[in-house]
Every structure is written in C-alpha cells, then in structure tokens.
Write a protein that binds this DNA or RNA. Structure first.
Length: 530
DNA sequence: TTAGGGTTAG
C-alpha cells in the first residue's frame, strides 16, 4: 500500500464543514474549490491539535485521491496527526509510504512510539534515525515522560548531556522537570533546576510552570510558591499548577484564595483549574463552595463539564455524606459512569456505612469488569467492612481469575545522603531492631495522647490485635522511623509512597509530627483520588 | 503560504 490508508475509510462524501470550521465558508461545497497540498497539511494539523482522528481520516481519504497524494510534507503532517490521536500503527503505515524521509518525518514517528509507551520500537527507531538532533532527543525523552517511563527518560537525558548535544532552546528541560515531578524526586528536581539556571532558562514560562508543578509534587509547596511568586508572566497553567499543588497539600482555603487572585488578575480558568478547585473543596468538605464552582464553570466560563468533573462533584457530595444527591448526579449526567465514578461513590458508601447503597453500587462496579487493582481492593474492602466474607472471597477469586495483582506497597525516603526503599514489615533491614523499637516507643506515646488505631482499612478476616499489628508496620511508618533515626533533628522527612496512604497512617504521621516536632510529608506517586 | 520536540487533571 503506497498511501498507508485502509480503503474502508475512504469516502468521497464531503465532510460536514461545520465539524471543523463552523464559521468559515465551505470551500468544497460553496466555492467548488479543490484543496492543494498547503490546505491538506493545514487541515491535518488542525485535526491533530483537536485530537480528531475521524475528521483526520476523512482528510486523509481526500488527500489520497487528490493530485497531491505523493506530497511528503502532507504525509509528515499525517504521521503527526495519527501520533497525536494515539494511533501509532496508522502513523507508521503513512511513515513507510514517505519517499524521502527527513528529520521532521523521523521525529514525528519517533515521538509516536515513545508517547504510546512502545519502548522497544522507539529505541529501534532512534538507532535508525539518520541524524540525531535536539528534536529527535526531545521527541524520545518527552514521549517517555508522557507515557510514564520517567526513569528511561532520565537516563536518556543524562546520555544526551554526555553526548554533548547543545540545548539551544529549552523544550526538553520542561519535559525532564516533569519527569522529576512524576518520580516525586525532590533531589533530582533540584539538580535539574540548577541546570535550568546555569543554562539561563529560568525565566521561560513553560519551564517555570513545570518547576512550580515539580516542587508541589515533590512535597515542597514553599519552593513552588516562591517560584510562582517570582514569575513575571503567569498564564492559566501557572495559576492552575499552584492551585492544584495547594489542593494536593490539603490547603483548600489557600487554593480558593489563589483562584480569586487569578480571576482578579484577568486570567480565565480552564477545565483543569476546575478539577483542581472541586478536588480542593471535596477533600475538606466545602460542599456549597464546590457546588457553586461546578455551576460557575458552565455559567461564567462556558466550559461543559466532562465525566471527570461530574466524578469530582460526586466525590464532593458523597464524601460529605450527601449520598442520595451523589447518586442522582450519576442518573442525571450525560455520560455513562466509568470505573472511577462508581469507585468514588462506593468508597463514600463504605465511609458512611451505607451498606444498602454500597451493595447496589458494588454490583454496578463489578458489571463493568474493572481493570484497576485498586477497584478490586476497594470492593474487597467494602465487603469486609460489611462482614460479607463470602463476597470478599468471590472478589479475591475474581482477581486471581482476571490475573489482577495488587502492587506491593513501598515507601521511599531520601535522607539527603542516600535513598532507601521500605516495604511493610521489612524483616531483613540491618536497623530492623532499632526501627521497631522506635515504632513501639512512638506507639505508646501516641496512645497516651489518645490515638486509637483505625483498623477499617485492614482487609483480612482476622482479630483486632492482628489487624493492629498489620497497621503497625506499614511501609510509611517504617520509613519515618528510619528518617528519625538517621536525619538531623528538625529536618523535614519526605516520604514517597507508590500507593495511597491509608487513613490510619495519616493519623499516625500527624501524631509523630507532634511528638517529634517534625514536619513529615508523604506523597503518593499514584494520585488516584477519584 | 504547508510538516516534527515543551508545562497544569486523570
């Protein structure tokens, strides 16, 4: 096939002009003009930026029956369009049809494999690129960051520096700052920040935005605020990054105050800003403010709520006990509820002890044949809290049948000199005795201060004492104890956990912070709050 | 006059 298109997609019907360009005259239908290669490339680019593969395929079909069907520039734009629409195989079919491949076509395809997580194909292609330049390095590194391969992205960045590639402009740096954020590695982030300053790019808007986000995600909200405060120009991404950062640190009032300042500064919020704001309200129970924001999103800014916005609203209502109203949101919303939507409601049913609604919601959730391990854990947890042990066993069997495996939890602490990873229990650590001695000492002190273990997050069918023992050596506590033993008094202990921190550990970390007069921060690498 | 790499949620 010379054009890389499936013929079943080929249509000679003109597409609706209102789809892509509602206000402009219809070139095909009114003026009877045929597009040339410039028009095709521009149209394809528009489809790429809209993420509109259906329209993109229609333009592609028009192109292959046009007199310009051999134009390599249009083909490069088609590769880019398919890549941006998440269709790397379609992109590759077009890429293969390009007669004279140049740096642009190679870069577009390379980016396609990297951003869709097709690591081996991306590396193979990178080996075959005729000329490696900053574009191809950036495509590979950024693609890996986007597909969650932060570690690979980082090693590639180091390799790029070792090969002496000139960073003539800073795009790659915003991606690599983003990878530090995703890895929640403050130390790496600080080093990259140093490099940004050394290369003279600190005032770049994209880089500053990425740095604000990175510091917030690496638990240093003070540094994030400092950078934000020093920015001479701020756009909607800058404001949204600091709002989301404050919200994730539980500073809802601050997030809302920043939002007010943003509106006063004349910056229009976008759909991400509202996700952050409703999230902030949800986590501190500001129900009426959250409701108003949801309404304001449409009324004042013309933003149609997405499924995610509805899930945020439902989370806000159900967490604060408005379960019936939350269920009504599901009935009334113009989307089919997905796994996170039902999961948010089920979690609230469990929290508020509404077993009747919870059982109904759990059935809905199971009918979706969930894929996320966390959903199965939630289901099992819900049934366990209702002492429905047969259902717990069924969920466990379903997990085994579906080959769903719970990722083992671990916590990582960086002492400034070294980084250590701890799993629950950690029976072989050289400092095991000292760590558990300290945890026992802290446990006694906390109980004197009124701490009562919250065993509701322990899944298993076991007695109270055994459940408390399970909580006692959760990995984040082991990591905190290690930090207390190794770090200078007064140091902030930053712990990164791969899973969400359980309710009891939140309470325990607050108590430990009080007992030891320390600031203990935890950050989940996977923020799965909805 | 047309094509490639960048930041915020999930």
């Amino acid at each position: 096939m010379s054009h890389g298109l499936q013929f079943s997609l080929l249509t000679t019907k003109p597409m609706s002009p209102t789809k892509l360009s509602p206000s402009s005259p219809a070139m095909f239908t009114l003026d009877k003009l045929q597009p040339d290669h410039f028009v095709f490339a521009t149209l394809v680019k528009a489809c790429a930026s809209l993420g509109a593969p259906r329209q993109g395929k229609q333009v592609h079909a028009r192109f292959v029956i046009s007199p310009f069907c051999d134009d390599d520039v249009v083909k490069s734009s088609l590769v880019d369009m398919y890549v941006k629409c998440g269709l790397p195989d379609d992109a590759h079919a077009v890429f293969n049809s390009i007669k004279f491949k140049n740096s642009v076509s190679w870069t577009a395809m390379l980016s396609g494999y990297a951003r869709s997580g097709r690591k081996n194909e991306a590396f193979e292609m990178f080996e075959r690129v005729p000329v490696r330049n900053l574009f191809s390095w950036t495509a590979l590194i950024s693609g890996f960051v986007q597909s969650g391969n932060g570690t690979d992205a980082f090693y590639l960045f180091i390799k790029m520096r070792r090969e002496g590639v000139d960073i003539g402009e800073p795009l790659v740096l915003s991606s690599i700052v983003g990878s530090c954020a995703n890895l929640a590695s403050l130390e790496l982030g600080k080093q990259i920040h140093g490099l940004v300053i050394a290369l003279g790019y600190e005032s770049s808007l994209f880089i500053s935005n990425a740095l604000v986000d990175m510091y917030a995600k690496c638990s240093d909200i003070v540094a994030a605020k400092n950078i934000f405060g020093r920015m001479r120009r701020k756009d909607v991404v800058s404001w949204t990054s600091i709002i989301v950062g404050a919200a994730q640190h539980g500073r809802a009032e601050e997030a809302l105050a920043i939002y007010d300042a943003m509106v006063s500064a004349g910056v229009k919020p976008n759909e991400v800003t509202f996700v952050g704001l409703i999230y902030a309200c949800s986590h501190v129970g500001l129900v009426s403010r959250g409701r108003k924001l949801f309404k304001s999103m449409t009324d004042d800014y013309g933003i149609s709520p997405s499924l995610q916005h509805y899930t945020c609203l439902l989370d806000l209502l159900s967490r604060s006990g408005h379960l019936a109203e939350a269920e009504n949101v599901i009935q009334a919303m113009p989307f089919k509820p997905d796994e996170p939507t039902w999961a948010a409601l089920l979690s609230a049913c469990k929290q508020h002890g509404n077993m009747q609604m919870g059982t109904r919601v759990a059935n809905q959730l199971l009918s979706l044949k969930p894929e996320e391990p966390s959903t199965y854990i939630l289901l099992s947890n819900f049934y366990a809290s209702a002492a429905m042990w047969e259902h717990v066993s069924k969920v466990r069997k379903l997990m085994a049948h579906m080959e769903v495996k719970k990722e083992p939890g671990y916590s990582c602490i960086d002492t400034g000199k070294e980084s250590q990873v701890f799993h629950a229990g950690e029976p072989y650590h050289p400092l095991k005795d000292k760590i558990f001695g300290l945890l026992r000492e802290l446990d006694g002190e906390m109980r004197r201060r009124g701490y009562v273990p919250d065993i509701s997050s322990v899944l298993h069918d076991m007695d109270q004492q055994e459940k408390e023992k399970q909580l006692f050596w959760h990995s984040e506590r082991v990591a905190v104890a290690y930090g207390l033993l190794k770090c200078v008094p007064g140091t902030v202990l930053r712990i990164v956990k791969n899973l969400r921190v359980c309710g009891d550990c939140h309470t325990v970390l607050k108590h430990i912070s009080d007992c030891k007069q320390r600031n203990c921060c935890t950050r989940c690498q996977q923020i799965s709050s909805f």
